Simulated assay, not measured.
Amino acid sequence: MEYKDYYKIMALSREASQDEVKRAYRKLARKYHPDVSKETDAEAKFKELGEAYEVLKDPEKRAAYNELGTNWKSGQDFKPPPNWDEGFEFKGGGFTGGDAGDYSDFFEQLFGRAEFQSTHAGERHGAHPRGQDSHAKIHIDLEDSYHGATRTISLSTPEMTAQGQVQVKHRSLNVKIPKGIKPGQHIKLAGQGNPSMGNGLAGDLFLEIALNTHPLYRVAESDVYLDLPVTPWEAALGAKIIVPTPEGSVDLKIPANSKQGSKLRLTGRGLPTKIPGDFYIILQIVLPPADTEQAKAVYQHMQKTLDFNPRQSMGGLIP
């Protein structure tokens, strides 16, 4: 995936005001509009310009984009830094123009396709409009979902200065993480969204949950997976070994003649959701290195005494 330098596309400095962004777009849109432009690559330029404007005209998207830093060059191979967008508050409303399908992979990797619908309290609170809801993503540890926790989170809210510049305001909140919450679910904090323009209630803040990368486990829906290294003799002969889980170690029986990738299940030991997930152990057979004369002798003995050809099932395809 290639990095897109939206400031370069719009011929702007990173310090440009929002008014300058608008003026640059109007000027370049006239130049590259496919209906009037004589440029050979007008359509592609116009599409690229629209994407850049979609980001830079929106203070929230622009502030998040700026977090990627200034060390990237247009066209450079790009992968978003881990948790790069954590704690950024976005108002409801989603895309503000164009067809989502017109955006590049770079745009969708950063901002996705999801559209949060704003709630305006004029519909629910009479004459005093309610503030907009806001949304942010936070990362928690897997153990927080297993046991529940209270965490202090930092949020970054883009704001416009009187000079039309985008600045980021920071705040901290104590958040209760409920036991059994899954990635993609939301925690609602009533009244912690955007303030009302009048005397109405503030909007709500919705925190989307993501999980920090764990050194041992990975999660799919409510199920948890562990890749477990085992020796060839443990897989071949069977064994009883101690296995770590987020809820503590358990004694696991490995059946004899287990194969690489065999899946063992501990029912109900996944995420403690309303319907608890399962915990899966995936066997990974690890061969000892033949790095000593003794180890080589063992392998040579196996070669001579075991009638074993792992390619036999391939028939005549292998000589």
Rank of each mutant, 00 (worst) to 15 (best):
L226P: 01
E115V: 14
A236V: 02
L110N: 13
A16D: 07
A44P: 00
Y65W: 09
R269A: 11
S313G: 13
H120N: 13
P244S: 02
G248Y: 06
K27S: 09
Y32Q: 04
P59L: 04
H135D: 00
D223Q: 05
A297V: 10
K137V: 15
D41E: 10
S13W: 03
Y299N: 11
I9D: 03
K57F: 03
V36E: 13
A64R: 12
S262I: 01
Q167L: 11
Y65T: 11
N194S: 13
F90C: 08
A42F: 02
N194L: 14
K296D: 09
E234F: 08
N174F: 00
A44R: 01
V286S: 02
K176W: 05
V230F: 11
D204K: 14
I187D: 09
N83I: 00
E15V: 00
S222R: 14
S145Y: 08
I241S: 03
S134M: 15
K253H: 12
S145F: 10
D223R: 05
T70C: 07
E2K: 14
R171L: 13
P276A: 04
I177P: 12
D35W: 05
Q312I: 10
T245F: 14
A295C: 09
Y103G: 01
V224Q: 04
N212F: 09
F46N: 10
Y7L: 08
E123I: 06
E115W: 07
E20L: 04
S313T: 08
I254E: 03
G126T: 06
A290N: 10
K296V: 15
G126V: 02
G94H: 03
G75L: 10
V286K: 10
P289H: 08
T273R: 01
K22P: 00
G50H: 08
P288N: 08
H186G: 00
P195C: 01
H125K: 04
L68Y: 02
F46K: 00
S13E: 15
V21H: 04
D105G: 12
T70Q: 14
N194Y: 13
L205R: 13
D141T: 02
F78R: 04
L252V: 15
Y7P: 05
G87S: 07
P195L: 00
F90S: 06
K8I: 00
I318E: 01
D144S: 11
A162M: 09
Q192D: 14
G193W: 06
Y7W: 11
L306N: 11
A295E: 15
P183L: 01
P195V: 02
A24K: 02
Y3S: 07
K61F: 12
G180Y: 14
N212G: 01
M302G: 07
E67N: 14
P195W: 01
L211D: 03
R23E: 15
G164H: 05
I242Y: 10
L271C: 01
T245Y: 14
A64V: 03
K179L: 11
